[in-house]
């Protein structure tokens, strides 16, 4: 168990930096986590992060990368539903990094 300090408030995370409580998430926390991952958030990044949060809201799971890629393609178009695009935004893995920034647990099956 660790904590991060954002805007004078502290938030609980696991040892890898994933938020412990889904409800703790806000854009300020997201920006902070993105910074620790060396990701500068752009509109394209937010689109993926928001998509992940909606997916989690609906299904209560963080999707595997393959599933995320396909689902993004369905929702946002084929030019975004491919791994080049997603890894371009999140070089260390859209599953791992985008889920962390979105305040979700690590995707099941992601090591």
């Amino acid at each position: 168990m660790s904590t991060i300090e954002v805007g004078g408030k502290s938030y609980e995370t696991d040892e890898e930096g994933y938020l412990t409580n889904l409800a703790d998430w806000n854009t300020e926390v997201a920006n902070y986590i993105a910074q620790t991952e060396n990701v500068t958030m752009t509109e394209q990044h937010w689109e993926v992060v928001n998509f992940l949060r909606e997916y989690f809201e609906e299904y209560q799971i963080a999707p595997a990368v393959r599933v995320l890629t396909k689902a993004i393609g369905k929702k946002l178009g084929a030019e975004k539903g491919n791994s080049e695009y997603l890894y371009g935004l999140f070089p260390y893995g859209p599953g791992k990094q985008a889920c962390k920034i979105a305040g979700l647990p690590k995707p099941t099956g992601c090591v």
Binding site: E58, Y59, Q60, I61, P63, V67, K70, A71
Partner: peptide, 8 residues
């Protein structure tokens, strides 16, 4: 709800 994601 995750059973509904199995299709994906």
């Amino acid at each position: 709800p995750a059973y509904r994601a199995l299709e994906d």
